[in-house]
């Protein structure tokens, strides 16, 4: 079940990344060859980033893929590791719970303001509600890891960003 949800969300985010690439291509070709850029390419780009990142946050939390510094892992006693795990999961859950709440508040505010994107005039509040909902799921995902035994690499802990 969990794996299936993960597959679906990952797939959706992957499709968004591809769309993002072709959106840019379409915009550049339209501007240079057809004399007309893709309408709203900039704002669609911004919105797809919301999808790509927030769809992934729950599984990053659950699979413990966020960047951590594990310098002292070899010398940390098992009990301390459990405490560390508890602190990390609790802080993660807390942060995303607050985020879920505040993004929902911001969503309703943005709705009452009537904020829209500049070109396509798409309402912006759904993007905020989407972020709020996935933040709530992420908070739960962090909670689910709270009593996990650290170093249990079945969950596939990644240690570094791997982005450098």
């Amino acid at each position: 079940m969990l794996t299936r949800i993960e597959t679906i969300t990952t797939f959706a985010a992957s499709v968004l990344v591809l769309l993002l690439a072709f959106l840019t291509l379409g915009d550049v070709i339209g501007r240079n060859l057809l004399g007309s850029p893709l309408p709203g390419a900039t704002e669609l780009t911004e919105l797809s980033l919301v999808g790509i990142t927030f769809l992934l946050y729950p599984q990053l939390a659950y699979r413990q893929r966020h960047v951590v510094i594990d310098l002292f892992d070899n010398v940390t006693p098992p009990l301390m590791k459990r405490v560390q795990q508890f602190i990390a999961a609790a802080l993660g859950a807390g942060t995303f719970a607050v985020l879920a709440w505040r993004l929902a508040v911001q969503g309703s505010r943005v709705a009452s303001y009537g904020d829209v994107t500049p070109f396509l005039q798409l309402p912006l509040s759904p993007a905020y509600y989407f972020m709020a909902a996935l933040s709530a799921v992420t908070a739960i995902a962090f909670l689910l890891t709270i009593f996990r035994v650290p170093g249990d690499d079945n969950h596939g802990a990644a240690r570094h960003s791997g982005l450098e």
Binding site: Y113, G114, D115, V116, T117, P118, Q121
Partner: peptide, 8 residues
Amino acid sequence: GYTPGRFP
């Protein structure tokens, strides 16, 4: 002007 729709 930075937030279209908000201050028409």
